[in-house]
Amino acid sequence: MTYSEENYLKAIYHLSLSQKQGVSTNAIAALVESKASSVTDMIKKLAEKELVIYQKYQGVGLTDKGLMAAKMIVRKHRLWEVFLVEKLDFAWDEVHDVAEELEHIKSEKLINKLDAFLGFPTEDPHGDPIPDKNGNIVKVEKQLLSEFEIGQTGICVGVKDSSSSFLQYLDKQQIALGSKIKIIAKESFDMSLTIEVEKKQIIISNKIASNLFAKIVL
Rank of each mutant, 00 (worst) to 15 (best):
S107N: 14
D41R: 14
N206F: 03
I43S: 00
E5Y: 05
V159A: 09
N211L: 10
M68K: 13
V39E: 06
A27H: 10
V98R: 09
L46F: 07
V138L: 06
K71N: 07
I12D: 05
L144N: 06
K87E: 14
S16C: 05
K199Y: 13
A29P: 04
L193F: 15
E187R: 09
S24P: 02
K109A: 13
Y3I: 11
Y8A: 11
F120L: 03
G22I: 08
I204M: 02
L114I: 12
I204P: 07
S24W: 02
E86G: 01
E198G: 10
L79I: 05
L193D: 10
L15Q: 09
L46W: 04
V52K: 08
D64G: 01
Y57L: 10
I203A: 14
G66W: 07
F120W: 03
C156M: 13
I150M: 04
K35H: 13
A11E: 04
H96Y: 11
E94D: 14
V197S: 15
E6I: 01
L110T: 10
V52M: 01
V95A: 06
L145D: 08
E50C: 01
K142P: 00
H96Q: 12
S179P: 14
H96M: 15
Q143C: 08
K160E: 11
K172Q: 15
V60K: 12
F90R: 08
Q168F: 03
Q174N: 13
E94F: 06
P121E: 01
D89V: 01
D124V: 00
H14Y: 05
I150W: 06
I155Q: 10
P121T: 06
S164Y: 09
D41S: 10
K35N: 13
K172T: 15
T40K: 15
E147C: 04
A185V: 07
I12H: 02
I203H: 13
G151Y: 07
E50P: 01
L88W: 11
N134W: 06
E33D: 15
E50H: 11
V217S: 12
A214L: 13
F83C: 08
W80H: 13
V140S: 05
M191S: 15
H96I: 06
Q21D: 12
L84F: 04
Q173L: 14
I105E: 09
A185S: 14
A47N: 11
L110D: 03
S18A: 14
D97R: 06
Q21Y: 14
M72L: 10
D97T: 10
S205W: 09
S162W: 02
I184F: 00
K65E: 01
G151S: 07
D132R: 00
K35W: 04
Q58R: 14
K20E: 15
M42F: 08
K49M: 09
L218Y: 12
H77V: 03
L212T: 07
A36S: 08
